[in-house]
Design a protein around this nucleic acid. Structure first.
Lengths: 343, 343
DNA sequence: TTGTAGGCGTTATCAA
DNA sequence: TTGATAACGCCTACAA
């Protein structure tokens, strides 16, 4: 395929040409293009006509150089390959962010990278301030993202609380993971469970820690043991292994809380293989309430993780920081139990 | 949270300061920073030391303004809300693109938008050439993306062939959807199916059309009827409705080809509700071979959609266009049947 | 190999 | 309200 003929199209028109066509100065043309403040009605109209006529569009790079703003924000996902896109949670968040940003003319720069060089590049990019703000989606204890952003003048919002809010004072929005854990236990117990177990998430993430803490608190409040705990990494493979381990060590577990729907789907398969009926032998509760939960058999009882709503909040919080130099208060959203067939 | 004290950090160092610190001119410093061509070893070393010393990092906006390149590429997903992120296909592609781009210092600008204003902004952004290239992931007949890119000097690659390659001569990489449809039918027939049906994808996408055409060709070759066709939009809800319709109209279907794994998961539930056993009463084949296929019960027979590989190819094809002014030949990847429990 | 000088397209300052 | 004029930070002939 060759380049189509006539490809040497005229170079994009610049502001000088607009100014000339409109019979005004560059400065006036610039003002007219940017909202038209301090511009006479006639000049404004002339410039607008010229813009339309010439098909003028501002050059982003030049504008960025002059204003020191880029009209873009970074969406940061410091997540490992295996998990990143198998878990519908990210997708939902990403979608929420783009939707919330749709009315702005902010572009999304996607920054992905967990380890090594990829992660280093990501952090450099953030440090260099190449974007006007950042939204961080899946933050881990050691990823350094919180440190970099806390130390940067760039506005940022975390979806999911930072690992150590005291050391890294960044703004965040999160779901009430702790209460989610408590609710799960209360429900399991109400359904007759007497021996609780949990497949917890990786303990280098705030969400995982909080969900496990909630489960523990709930179990203790019910006077039940809290020793049947295994950990996995939010992947199907990891959860499969962990669930097998759990039931090998504690075959009497009859109430299971799994820290994500995706992992719960894996647990379900393991239980099936083991010949345990759900919910008759083992009552099962997940976390996230993604579409997946409804398509499992039996359909999954789970806790709502309002990913889209968190994304919306995050964008709002970020935008509100653009005007003022101050930060924003963190925001903790409520969760809710959705009862289906698995419990 | 107030702005931490001492926030008035020194402004980022510029090339002039590097040059001064290194005792060379701006021009030499620039050359040294960009590969060090035509720079004496001593000068190079001096500049490098100064860079490290000052923590210099080039300003992207300034560089973009001077070079007319942005060191970023657009990933374009002109897809509707309902589908975008429920289908793991996108996630896999996106992940593949980011991985393939990891060794470059190209940033990914994510462009999402299906209809109305969002779509218009997206097209404007592309037209304005704000990125060095574009990769388009889910192209529909009427989204205008192919037209805009075919008419633009910006290099681009489609993942999934454009709707009308003749009218919009853009480069693409795709899986052999047609052969996939044929293989599905041959397999279903070999398993004993005598009455074929299909849940096809939306007919404004190349992939859907090709899969359906393959199914048809295969059925005709086997001397079987091709009237049991319903259409859906690659969502669970749509596929559920469509499958119900299909079996209401053609209750005798005993071999079903569904155009995506996600939709096949919906079909599976419908069949279960209808009391049809899979594969005993109805043999089922999906398309994509995403992780989902293995977690369904029964596990899904399906066709490989090499999303990650397509992403890698797309990036390679795009990068190869950066050097030369010529385009790249389209690329059609083979698919393969993966037999599991559902057939 | 080096430095000088001009330009990339916009915005911001400051008189007029 | 307007228009010179000077940044913004970098790259790149061109001449030395």
């Amino acid at each position: 395929m060759t380049r189509p003929a006539g490809d040497d199209r005229a170079p994009a028109p610049t502001l000088v040409e607009v100014a000339r066509a409109a019979g005004v100065s560059r400065a006036t043309a610039s003002r007219a293009v940017n909202g038209g403040d301090r511009v006479s009605p006639e000049a404004l109209q002339a410039v607008r006509a010229a813009v339309r006529e010439l098909g003028y569009r501002p050059n982003r790079a030049a504008r960025a150089l002059a204003t020191r703003r880029t009209d873009s924000i970074a969406v940061v996902i410091p997540e490992s390959d295996s998990r990143l896109f198998t878990d519908p949670f990210f997708a939902t968040v990403l979608h929420g962010v783009t939707t919330a940003l749709a009315s702005t003319d902010l572009q999304i720069v996607l920054l992905i990278g967990h380890k090594g060089e990829q992660s280093a590049r990501m952090l450099d990019y953030l440090r260099d301030g190449h974007t006007d703000g950042a939204i961080v989606v899946s933050h881990h204890r050691m990823d350094n993202v919180a440190e970099v952003l806390a130390d940067s003048p760039m506005p940022s919002v975390f979806i999911g609380r930072p690992w150590d809010p005291a050391k890294t004072p960044v703004t965040w929005v999160d779901v009430d993971n702790f209460t989610g854990g408590v609710l799960a236990v209360e429900h399991l117990v109400a359904r007759g469970a007497r021996r609780l177990g949990t497949v917890a998430g990786p303990q280098d993430m705030g969400a995982s820690v909080d969900r496990l803490a909630g489960w523990r608190a709930g179990a203790e409040a019910a006077g039940l043991a809290t020793d049947a705990v295994v950990h996995a990494d939010y992947t199907v493979a990891g959860a499969t292994r962990a669930t097998e381990e759990l039931f090998a060590a504690h075959p009497d577990v009859d109430g299971l809380f799994v820290a994500s729907d995706l992992m719960a789907s894996a647990a379900l398969r393991v239980l099936e293989t083991l010949g345990r009926r759900v919910p008759d032998d083992v009552r099962l509760v997940g976390f996230d309430n993604m579409e997946l939960a409804t398509s499992l058999r039996p359909a999954l009882t789970t806790l709502v993780n309002p990913a889209a709503e968190m994304a919306r909040h995050a964008v709002e919080m970020l935008l509100s920081q653009f005007g003022s130099s101050g930060g924003t208060e963190p925001d903790l959203l409520a969760t809710e139990l959705v009862v289906r067939e698995s419990s």
